[in-house]
């Protein structure tokens, strides 16, 4: 029996093995069980997962920027510490997800390269600017809130490493949303100017947050296949509608309003409805023409270049230690 590595590397198989692999995959799907890295999987399944997980990882990494920008100007030491912890969590989320993507046979370096080269996509939401301190509240409440809504069902994704990464991430996200909610609540109960600042931030982040769930169902061609593969559990519109329902409740506690006079509960469909969203803007931002796309990528590139000496020094140190150790081993052997 050959010892197997932990990574999944697509191999050339005989037609019989290919058929057996497909049969096993189909059985796993039918039983709603999990696929693990060394299992046979259809090439399209691997490709879809790799795209989705790496885009998700990139989103966590780029998503650090709008908030990191505010760490130095957080209004108190406590808020500064909280914001730093949140941004650090997002870095962790990116790393969990890169690890999950790596089990599919792609290296992290290659994924990073693609991001920096502008070849990879990430969530459109992070291409909007964070204009005031209240944006830290709106981002935590609406953006992390929408992310949680999206991610909780992904904990049951059919690909084991992805599901496990999502479990870890979801555990950490609830603090993100709550700290954002608290920022808004505090501002809302502050001076009229502070309350206005909170309302303004909610007004700007509401629609982009709703668009985080992706295009409407009849305009989302890949959703069906992802649902058949048990990667996606609910449609974009379904999740969006649930999210709107939660926000309607919570915005009342904040003493603020949603910038949408068409929000209503449809008694017939038993679903929450919202006003029209600007899907043209969504496509534009996704295509790289949003307010901050260039700036975000430039910053990521800078950080990567600025960190090069650290990566090199650490590798050189490790090599030196290794060389020293093998010298000692040889001396003992002699």
């Amino acid at each position: 029996m050959a010892a197997q590595n932990l990574q999944s590397v697509p191999a050339e198989l005989s037609p019989e093995d290919e058929a057996a692999g497909q049969a096993n995959f189909d059985r796993v799907m039918a039983e709603d069980s999990r696929i693990e890295p060394k299992d046979w999987m259809p090439a399209a399944y691997r490709k879809t997962l790799l795209r989705q997980i790496s885009q998700h990882a990139h989103s966590e990494i780029i998503g650090m920027q709008p908030e990191a920008n505010w760490i130095s100007r957080a209004p108190s030491l406590k808020r500064k510490a909280i914001l730093m912890a949140k941004v650090q969590d997002e870095a962790g989320h990116g790393l969990y997800l890169y690890s999950a993507a790596e089990t599919l046979g792609q290296t992290r370096d290659k994924m990073m390269e693609d991001l920096i080269a502008g070849k990879a996509r990430y969530s459109s939401i992070f291409n909007y600017p964070a204009l005031t301190w209240a944006d830290m509240g709106a981002i935590g409440w609406l953006v992390d809130g929408a992310a949680i809504c999206n991610q909780v069902p992904l904990c049951r994704a059919s690909y084991g490493p992805y599901g496990r990464a999502m479990v870890r991430i979801c555990k950490e996200e609830s603090f993100h949303q709550r700290q954002g909610f608290e920022i808004l609540l505090e501002l809302s109960n502050g001076t009229p100017e502070q309350k206005q600042m909170a309302q303004d931030a909610v007004n700007r982040w509401y629609a982009p947050a709703l668009m985080m769930f992706g295009p409407p169902d009849d305009d989302s061609p890949n959703s069906k296949q992802s649902m058949a593969w048990n990667i996606k559990r609910f449609s974009n519109d379904e999740l969006r509608s649930r999210f709107v329902g939660m926000m309607v409740e919570q915005v009342r506690v904040l003493g603020l309003t949603l910038p949408d006079d068409q929000v209503r509960f449809n008694e017939d469909t038993r679903k929450w409805e919202h006003g029209p969203l600007d899907w043209h803007e969504f496509q534009e931002v996704l295509a790289g023409r949003g307010p901050c796309n260039a700036q975000r990528l430039e910053r990521r590139r800078e950080a990567h270049d600025d960190g090069a000496w650290v990566r090199e020094a650490a590798a050189a140190y490790a090599a030196k230690q290794q060389a020293k150790q093998s010298m000692t081993t040889k001396e003992y052997a002699a």
Binding site: N69, I71, P129, P291, Q295
Partner: peptide, 18 residues
């Protein structure tokens, strides 16, 4: 400078690691 006037904060985690 970014459109929202935020100075970029160097975010290297190197010192944390060392």
């Amino acid at each position: 400078m970014s459109p929202h006037g935020n100075p970029e904060v160097p975010a290297s985690s190197a010192s944390e690691v060392i």
